[in-house]
Amino acid sequence: MEMGLAKGWVPVALDAQIAPGSSHPVVINDMGLAVWRGSSGGAQVWEDRCPHRGMRLSFGFVRDEGLVCLYHGWEFSQGGKCRKIPAHPELDPPKTICTRTFGSLSYRGIVFASLDKAATPDLPADSQEEWLPVRSVFVAVPMDRVATYLGAKDNVFGAVATADGLGCHRLALADGAQITVALQPVGAEKAAVHLTSRGADADLRRTLARYAVRMRRILEIS
């Protein structure tokens, strides 16, 4: 079964989790990232480290479509360039001062990041609006074990997950609802599982969220 790392894109969060004007810490294979969004537009994925004194940018706040570091207020615009250093208000920051940025895209209600400058894949004309957030769960097992579990027909969702070739797995439920599952390797012994659904009302999505928790419990007991 394909892992969730096809074509160099890794899921990092549900779109709904990255609310406009917010920033969040995400870890991929023990590497810290800051995922944030301006008042509108796509989520940004940056290295979680201010180039000044190494403060985690995920602790920062969003202002004027940029991310501001919590320590000294250095402001970085989308694209990563430093645009303001408050200790020196008259200074135009040198263009060399910037954060390390990564590619990001949204697919089926999930934010993906590319750490290696992977080409943006051709995404099918999937209607983004139809995919609603279920939830993300964090499981203290390696990502492979989650993939194996989802590929087995007795998993908690009652449907075998099949890879969709774009780094996600899809489950089709009996009543026609579909689930997208994207797996994120957090560390050697920790994975994040992001779930969105199409054709499932709020009651079903709540049930799916509970199944995700049950899956976490099953995987962590053994």
Binding site: G32, D48, R49, P51, H52, R53, G54, M55, R56, F59, L70, Y71, I85, A87, H88, L91, I97
Partner: peptide, 23 residues
């Protein structure tokens, strides 16, 4: 809160590891 969230925790003497200003 700041101190526990600087990366890396260890101080680097490498010239380009971090970017100081006049302040």
């Amino acid at each position: 809160i700041i101190l526990e969230n600087q990366r890396p925790a260890l101080l680097s003497f490498a010239p380009n590891a971090e970017i100081p200003t006049k302040a």
